[in-house]
Computed example of a mutant assay.
Amino acid sequence: MFYVLAGLAAGICAGLYFPVYIPPEYGKMLSVALMAALDTAFGGIRSSMEGSYDNTVFITGFFTNAVLAAFLCYVGMILGIDLYLVGILIFGMRIFQNLAAIRHLFLKK
């Protein structure tokens, strides 16, 4: 747990002292990528708490979510449709489902 908190503190400090400018045209893609990463992270936490964590499943899920998010953004940009909203909606629902399951598992202990 110490390493997690130390990494979080180091990340926050690095973000404050070395700000990164992201162009507005990449904002949509970044938002979907962030949602995909959060979905995978909370899914990994949930499976770890359930005792069914598998690193292979976690890594393949991470890359599958990333490819799906990139594909939705790319196709949406080609068609001129805001398909990134679909990615945000789907990944957002999955995040809330995982958070609810984590909360239930945490309260059972």
Rank of each mutant, 00 (worst) to 15 (best):
M1G: 12
A33R: 02
L30P: 02
A10N: 09
L83N: 13
M49T: 03
F62G: 03
G7W: 10
Y26M: 08
D82G: 14
G92I: 03
M35I: 01
V67C: 09
A101H: 11
V57T: 13
L72W: 08
I88K: 13
Y17R: 13
A9K: 05
Y17L: 15
D54Y: 10
I81P: 11
D54T: 12
D54L: 13
H104L: 03
M1Y: 06
Y84E: 01
L68N: 10
A36H: 02
Y17D: 11
E25A: 00
L79P: 10
N65T: 04
G43E: 04
F106S: 12
P24L: 03
M35E: 02
V75G: 10
Y53P: 05
L105V: 00
T56D: 12
C73N: 12
D82R: 14
L89S: 10
F62N: 02
S47P: 08
G15P: 09
T40Q: 06
D82Q: 15
N55S: 15
T60G: 01
M93F: 05
T40I: 00
Y53Q: 05
S48M: 03
M49Y: 04
F62W: 00
L34S: 12
A101M: 11
E25G: 09
L83R: 13
R46N: 04
F42R: 08
D82M: 14
V67Q: 13
C73S: 09
H104S: 03
V4K: 09
V20G: 06
I78G: 01
D39I: 00
I78R: 00
F2S: 11
V20P: 08
Y3R: 12
L5W: 05
L79N: 07
G43H: 06
I12V: 14
A41T: 06
S52Y: 02
L79M: 15
L16W: 11
L38A: 00
A36F: 04
M49P: 01
L72H: 05
V86G: 09
I90E: 14
A41Y: 01
D82C: 14
M93C: 04
L38C: 02
H104V: 06
V32M: 05
C73E: 08
Y21K: 11
P24N: 09
A41H: 03
Y21V: 05
M49N: 01
V57I: 05
T64V: 08
Y74K: 03
G76S: 03
I59N: 06
D82F: 13
G61T: 00
A9Q: 07
V75F: 07
A101S: 10
A100Q: 07
L38N: 02
Q97H: 14
K109V: 04
F42T: 09
F2A: 13
G80Q: 13
Y74H: 07
P19I: 02
G51H: 06
F63W: 11
D82W: 12
F42Q: 04
E25F: 08
A9D: 03
E25S: 09
L38H: 07
G61K: 02
L89D: 15
I45G: 07
Y26D: 05
Y21T: 04
L68G: 06
D82S: 15
Y74D: 03
F63M: 15
S31P: 04
M49A: 08
A14M: 15
E25Y: 11
A37H: 11
Y74W: 08
A33P: 00
R103A: 14
Y17T: 14
G43W: 00
E25N: 12
I78T: 02
I78N: 01
G43R: 05
F106R: 10
L5H: 10
G27W: 07
Y74Q: 04
